[in-house]
């Protein structure tokens, strides 16, 4: 099951009609513990709203009194559980959430560190360099041949390499340490900085930037040049080592790279995908 298909549990700290308020410190401790555990939490008051879609399971914790909680539960949808939290300490509140999550089959959040590229479409020129660079199938195209992130969870944690090959600094990793990759404003100096411009021509065996500049005039695909696959493999590895030396690719990522044969195969597949998308855009003669 993919991430997108999994339901998650929301916890509501209910402080509206029929319930007493939580004491401030208790509310904070509960919030903090539930968030650390990966749950979304809503604190609602009279007339307050809950950000939910009407389908996800929901645990409502409130200081109702046992009788009122029972009455309310009898009227609630099956996906909603009401629990009198008057006598629950924070540990017990988290345990209630864990228990209900288990019963409903909702996802356990936090098992995967959410590290993946986020595309800034205000900057992206749909050049497909990210797609042709990534060996892990993170990128794809939508029905309109626009680049998109399709498999977030295949991205290698802490590796921002694809953002380095983007000529427009359009790829962000919000959890990255520094700008503009972390989402900070992109400046001209960022674009010009040597560090930002890992020369993708070294990966693809040609002057891709020059080709990009000439693309609209000559209506050529940047992938039109034949290249030696062994050379391309060596150059890709060289680039990855360069990024690793700059402290941008964790050793674990380099260690988990597939075999040279597999890299060559995936590189060809990625190249073909990018080429097909560019052709569909009408960028080839």
């Amino acid at each position: 099951m993919s991430l997108k298909d999994e339901q998650t549990l929301r916890v509501v700290l209910y402080e509206g009609g029929g319930s007493q308020s939580f004491e401030n410190d208790r509310r904070y401790q509960a919030m903090s513990a539930l968030l650390d555990r990966g749950y979304s939490v809503t604190r609602t008051t009279v007339g307050g709203r809950v950000a939910e879609d009407g389908e996800q399971p929901m645990l409502v914790l409130g200081c109702f009194g046992e009788e009122a909680a029972g009455d309310l539960q009898a009227r609630a949808e099956p996906r909603v559980r009401l629990k009198n939290a008057s006598r629950l300490d924070v540990v017990a509140m988290v345990a209630e959430a864990d228990s209900f999550r288990g019963e409903t089959g909702a996802a356990a959040q936090g098992a995967w560190k959410p590290w993946f590229p986020v595309i800034d479409y205000d900057r992206c020129t749909n050049c497909m360099q990210c797609l042709s660079f990534c060996l892990f199938g993170v990128y794809g195209v939508d029905a309109g041949q626009r680049i998109q992130v399709q498999n977030n969870d295949q991205c290698k944690t802490n590796c921002p390499a694809c953002s380095r090959v983007c000529p427009e600094a359009a790829i962000m990793f919000p959890k990255y340490k520094a700008g503009p990759i972390n989402g900070d404003v992109v400046s001209e100096s960022d674009l010009n900085r040597e560090k930002m411009k890992i020369d993708i021509s070294a990966l693809l065996g040609g002057d891709v930037y020059q080709m990009l500049r000439e693309r609209s005039d000559k209506a050529k695909s940047r992938f039109s040049k034949e290249r030696d696959s062994e050379k391309a493999l060596k150059e890709r590895q060289k680039c990855l080592v360069k990024l690793a030396q700059a402290g941008d690719i964790p050793a674990e990522v380099l260690m988990s790279l597939p075999s040279p044969e597999e890299i060559a195969k995936r590189a060809l597949e990625a190249k073909a995908k990018a080429e097909a998308a560019l052709k569909a855009q009408g960028n080839t003669p």
């Binding site: 991430l3 990966g38 939490v41 936090g110 919000p174």
Partner: peptide, 18 residues
């Protein structure tokens, strides 16, 4: 009243309807 999420990146990756 307010909503809190453990991690907005994870919510985005999940395309969480909320």
């Amino acid at each position: 009243p307010f909503d809190a999420v453990a991690d907005l990146c994870e919510m985005s990756a999940r395309r969480d309807p909320s």
